[in-house]
Design a protein around this nucleic acid. Structure first.
Lengths: 220, 220
DNA sequence: TCGTATCTTGACCACTTGGTCAACATTTTA
DNA sequence: TAAAATGTTGACCAAGTGGTCAAGATACGA
């Protein structure tokens, strides 16, 4: 119950105004821990993960882990912080000057590739949101909302100019997010339903998504 | 680690060949427990939930809960079993005789409504898959795969007859699943990004999804 | 090379949690 | 109504978990 109050900024602040500069060993070990923690958290969720698991995965003792990050929550916040930007970056590139459908498809394509190459990040994020977004909610409400709102304005402009079918911009973004992240988040289900190798799976996913999006978004 | 080996059939078998018939109290309490457990499991995941929480939610003592279900895993399996059918039923209605786009949209619409009215079920399922589908994997590989395969065949026929855009049937289903379940599974993110009331949200979601699907799936 | 700061860990603790059990309460059956 | 079956629970236990700490190991600047 008290697990809910975690703050993303604890870690961020440390990189900013840390009084003493970070040792070589410190940098190496913190990176190692965060990498291991991403593995563990993304496949077990926050509560399902133990510091011991992270320690094992990272190849160090539990006590040593807790030397670099005071609490389990701190580790979690650090992993989330370092993952969020990578995960949400592509949206930033959506260019008001480009061809609408091309731009949107490019974005969807990038997200699909990210789903394939960084499924851990996707699952970490999915787990966090599913549990009510206790840690990232402030981030969602501030930075992400600002970004999404500005991109929605671009999409709306495209629609107003008749370059795009009259969809609700926000829900178009949701559609792209869900359709692409699905391949990372629901991987066990997907592999249970298909015998095709990953290669072919993503190829077909891309073709289908491209066809539906480009046709579905065409104006008139 | 040993949590992974749970079996969905434990509960199912009990309803079949139970040696002694079920008492009134038994039926009432088991239903009460399952209802409470759906609440708890869907919002905390399996490992994040405690039997105590379920007991509190159900309004009975922990010991009494463990009297009706021997283990936490049994409760989980029971909840999952009773939720799965409801969650996956609509696909069964996809009719080879109907109009392809109409049928597919009807299915998507039903899933979207289910997402709204039974978000707990969606999140329970999402949690389970995210953790690697330890319990439902056999179900996915057998019953669900059979159902999905047969429906894919229908969709492929529609495509071959030129009544539908040439998409990969399986991935079309994935798209419908992801786009609709997204509204239940990622609710915190959605409400963080939109100020609109639920009512309007689902209205816009439906319109956008309908537009993109009907246009995107139109043949030629 | 020496002394200081940083790093590492086994042992330990408090607390949570799944599950048991004996004793007691209620319902059902004859 | 009395015995048998079923239902209910507080007290308890063992295992697992997050986190502490003192003591030792290692790196590093002068």
């Amino acid at each position: 119950m008290a697990d809910d109050e975690i703050n993303l900024n604890g870690e961020v602040a440390a990189t900013d105004s840390s009084p003493r500069k970070r040792t070589r060993i410190q940098i190496r070990n913190e990176a190692r821990i965060v990498r291991a923690a991403l593995d563990v958290f993304s496949s077990n969720g926050y509560r399902g993960s133990t510091v011991d698991q992270i320690a094992d995965t990272a190849g160090m003792s539990k006590a040593n882990i807790l030397y670099y990050f005071n609490t389990k929550q701190d580790i979690y916040a650090a992993v989330l912080a370092r993952t969020l930007t990578v995960w949400l970056d592509p949206l930033d590139e959506l260019d008001a000057g480009g061809d609408p459908i091309e731009e949107l498809w490019k974005y969807a394509q990038q997200k699909l590739q990210l789903s394939r190459k960084a499924p851990h990040a996707s699952r970490l994020f999915a787990n966090e949101i599913l549990q009510g977004a206790p840690v990232v909610r402030p981030f969602l409400e501030n930075q992400l909302k600002a970004l999404v709102t500005s991109k929605c304005r671009i999409i709306q402009t495209w629609i107003d100019e008749g370059k795009l079918a009259p969809v609700a911009p926000l829900h178009l973004i949701f559609l792209i997010w869900s359709a692409t992240q699905h391949y990372a988040d629901f991987a066990p289900q997907i592999s249970a339903l298909s015998d095709d190798p990953e290669e072919m799976l993503y190829e077909q996913a891309e073709q289908t998504l491209k066809l539906i999006l480009t046709r579905g978004l065409a104006p008139e």
